[in-house]
Each structure stands twice: as C-alpha cells, then as structure tokens.
Amino acid sequence: MTMSTAPVRVTLRAATEEDRAFLVALYATTRDDLALLPPEQRSMIMDLQYRAQDHQYRQANPGADFDVVEIDGRPVGRLYVDRGTDDIRIVDISLLPDCRGAGTGAALIRAILDEAAASGRIVSLHVAFDNPAAHLYERLGFRLVAEHGAHRLLEWTAP
C-alpha cells in the first residue's frame, strides 16, 4: 500500500528481522510505565516484552500482514492487519511519537475502512482504556462492542 499526501509519501512494507531493533524501540515508545527503570534494565524488559507480544500476535493471527510504516522511506511505525472472510482486524497500529497526531494513522485506518466497505466486511480492533488513540477510532466511526479487562473491543461497519 502506498499513500501519497504531498509532500510526504506513506508506504507499507513487510516487516523483516532487520526491522527488529526499530520495532523494539517503537514498542518502547508506547510504554511509559517503565520510564523510571535504569536504561539497561528497561532495554532488556522492552526486548523481552516485544518478543512476547510479537509471538502472541503471530500465533493468534497467522495470516496477518505485519508491516512497517514508512514516510519518505523512513520507518515511523507498524501496522498489523488480519484480513478474515467477514472482518478485517487491526491487530496493532503504532507510530513514533513525532508522527502521532499528524494524520498518518487516520489515513492508514481510512484505507482499511475503504477496503472493508468495498468488500462488505467490518473492521475490528482492541484498544486500551487509557490509549489516547481511542478518540481517533471514535471519530472514524468505531463503536464499542465489548469490554475485556483493560481493553475495549471496537468495531466499524460501513454506513
């Protein structure tokens, strides 16, 4: 997928083992709860948690696309999407802090919503209660379906 919003070019490409250091660093930007740990300890914990999350995502979504988001060739995020027969599940979307709030995430999600509308599928995702991106999902038309512990299941259906 390539989206061009002048003057930037947003592309997706399959994540590879060479992206691991970037993906661990990206994951760390989503985890403020460990900020007070010494850097080497925090780094080790982030690596272990990223590995566990990645393993779980891949086990639960074996047919999913695990993509790195790039802007003008620079990795800035990840987008993991599992396209099923009846639904498209956004497994994970994360952007570097300096790319959040600039419309990139919304553009990526809108492309998925367009795909779902064209194929008659719904779009679903889980979001933590304290995740600021929940407001974006609501603005894009996602609705609460269920609550599971610290997460909410949201779904979007074409109008």
Rank of each mutant, 00 (worst) to 15 (best):
R110W: 03
W156I: 05
A21R: 13
P97K: 06
A52W: 01
R9G: 07
T5R: 14
L140S: 04
L140M: 10
A106I: 01
A25N: 11
E40C: 02
D92S: 05
L113A: 00
I88G: 06
D114Q: 11
D82F: 02
L36A: 15
Q53E: 08
V91L: 03
A28R: 03
G120D: 02
R20N: 04
L108E: 04
A25H: 08
D82N: 15
L23K: 07
I90C: 06
V68Y: 03
Y57G: 01
L95A: 09
F129A: 13
Q41V: 15
D19T: 07
M44W: 12
D87C: 08
D54L: 00
Q59Y: 02
R152F: 13
E70N: 12
F66S: 04
L12T: 14
T104N: 02
A107K: 04
P38C: 07
V24G: 06
L12D: 11
E147L: 07
A106H: 04
A128G: 10
D82I: 05
G77K: 08
T104M: 10
D19R: 06
I122T: 14
T29C: 09
C99S: 09
A35D: 13
R121N: 05
Y137E: 09
Y57M: 03
T5Q: 13
V10L: 15
T16K: 04
A14P: 08
V10S: 05
S94D: 12
V8T: 13
Y57N: 07
A14C: 03
P97A: 08
I90N: 01
T29M: 06
P75V: 09
T11W: 03
T157R: 14
H55V: 03
I112V: 15
L36W: 13
L48Q: 14
Q53S: 09
R74N: 13
D86A: 14
Y57H: 12
P97M: 09
A111M: 11
P39N: 08
L154S: 05
Y27W: 06
T5I: 15
G73F: 10
A106P: 05
A107I: 03
L26G: 11
A60Y: 00
L12S: 11
G101N: 08
Y57E: 07
L154H: 07
R58W: 01
G63M: 09
S94A: 15
G77R: 08
G84V: 12
Q59I: 11
L144S: 14
L113W: 00
Y137G: 11
R143G: 09
L95I: 10
V76K: 04
R89Y: 09
L153Y: 08
R143T: 15
S119C: 10
P39H: 09
R89D: 07
N61R: 04
L140I: 05
S43A: 15
F129S: 09
E138D: 13
Q53H: 07
A14F: 00
L48W: 03
I45Q: 11
R58M: 00
H148K: 11
D32I: 08
T16H: 02
V10F: 02
A102F: 06
Q49F: 02
R121M: 07
E17P: 00
P38S: 10
R58K: 12
A133P: 07
L23R: 15
L12V: 12
E18Q: 14
I112H: 02
L140R: 03
T16N: 00
M46E: 14
